[in-house]
Amino acid sequence: MKKFLFAGILLWAAAVKAQQAPVMKLVACEGKAQGTYYIVKYLCADTTSLQPRIDSIFGVIDQSLSLYKPGSVINRFNETGEVQMDEHMQAVVKKALFTYKATKGLFDITVEPLVYLWGFGVHKPSFKGVPPPDSIKAAMAFIGSRYLRIKGNHLYAVRKGVQIDCNGIAQGYTVDVLGRFLASQGIENYLVDVGGELCAKGHNHQHKVWSVGIERPSPGDTAYEPVQGLVRLPDKGIATSGNYRRFFDQGRTRFAHTIHPLTGVALHNNIISVTVIAKDCFTADAFDNPLILMGVEKGLTYIAQHPAYGLEAIYIYKDKDGTIKEAFSKGFKQYMEF
């Protein structure tokens, strides 16, 4: 009799708890920022939109890292060669210098002069297309994060004329900042997407791990007519670098906006895209450009040889006969929903 009574009490307590538990609803905020779109989804009992505060966060980060914002912290550095960094620029520059060393210079925020020359910057050069070799050679004299120094929150260049561009990492950083903001509001389940760079936490409204779509080639494809593939993000970040976002074609060659900082030349290899999963979007975004510059074989070898970075990746590329193929790092398939 006591066992039945005890079981009844447990059932009653569970029922009361279920009644007291708030009903979680899916809330979505959408807008434009950092030259692209953003979508923030989260589960919350309070459906009051957080969009004004989300927009405010974008505004603060832009005032720090946007080359399009007059008077931003990064623009003040590029004008004078030194600046007192705020918390956002400090975090991004430190991560950039770490990645610069980790990739032996393949990630380098001092590429701003080259970004300008290739026509992917805020201002456009007087010519269009591939820059003259002498212009690239002249710009290379100012390329190299070895010219940057940090002392406290002070950033300065030891070579006059060095300028920085953090666009290759700022979106991933912003994604994680937004994720931390949601967590500070007591939100445990969310998905943040800023221009295709994403982070996820917890589960969606269907009580499943958040899934996001990536473009994958159809079998035997030669024209790259992609089909949608799904990737599960169990508390991870994901970022993609490719030759299909910002590019120009000259002759039969496509030049993408990713600049090789050791040669000064824009990306023009056989890789269509590389998608990177990491512990956070900041890390995934930092490594996607170096991995696409490495190429498929070297990139996958790099991931295998540096397990401490926690990277997994999928490459979409053109084989020698023009067939579109894909290659995975060892652990990437565990995230795929085929």
Rank of each mutant, 00 (worst) to 15 (best):
F77L: 06
P70D: 12
K330H: 14
V27N: 10
S126I: 13
A15G: 11
I54N: 00
V115F: 09
Q228R: 12
G186S: 04
W12T: 15
I54K: 02
R53E: 12
G119Q: 07
M294Q: 03
N289F: 06
Q20Y: 12
V158R: 11
C199K: 02
R180W: 13
Q34K: 00
P226T: 01
E337A: 08
P52V: 00
A223S: 13
K128D: 08
I169P: 06
A7L: 13
F287Q: 00
I259A: 07
L43Y: 11
T110D: 03
F120W: 05
S64C: 10
K25S: 10
I214G: 01
A266Y: 06
K330L: 12
Q63I: 07
I57G: 01
A223H: 14
M85C: 08
P132R: 14
Y315W: 04
T283Q: 04
H123F: 15
G220M: 04
H203F: 14
K3S: 15
D321A: 10
S49C: 06
A266K: 09
Q19E: 14
H260D: 15
G161Y: 10
L262C: 14
A13S: 12
S135E: 14
V115K: 08
Q228Y: 05
P52K: 03
G31K: 02
F255E: 03
I164N: 05
G172Q: 01
K2F: 15
K208N: 12
F328L: 08
P219S: 02
L148W: 06
C166D: 05
A308V: 12
T222H: 15
T36S: 00
A223E: 12
V265W: 15
I9M: 14
G129Y: 13
Q185M: 11
L10H: 07
Y38C: 00
I292P: 10
K137F: 13
A139Y: 11
K69H: 15
L117Q: 09
G172R: 01
F142D: 09
A91M: 02
F181P: 04
A157H: 04
G229V: 00
L155K: 02
T301A: 13
R252Y: 15
S72R: 09
D62P: 08
L178A: 00
C166K: 02
P22V: 07
I303P: 12
D288V: 09
V296G: 06
F181G: 02
G213N: 09
K25F: 13
I324G: 03
C281Y: 00
L233C: 07
N243C: 08
S184E: 09
K330S: 10
F127D: 14
I271E: 01
N153L: 05
M24D: 12
R216S: 03
W118L: 05
I57L: 03
V177D: 03
Y335F: 04
M336Y: 02
E297W: 11
T301I: 11
G59C: 05
L43I: 06
D235R: 01
N204W: 08
Q51S: 08
R180Q: 14
A278G: 02
M140R: 08
P133A: 11
G152L: 06
G186Y: 08
P132I: 11
G31S: 05
Y190I: 04
G229F: 00
G161E: 07
I169V: 08
I109N: 07
L191C: 05
L148Q: 05
I164W: 07
V296C: 05
I109S: 05
G310N: 02
T240I: 03
H260W: 11
D193K: 00
A45M: 07
H123N: 15
E337K: 12
E197F: 00
I214K: 00
R180S: 10
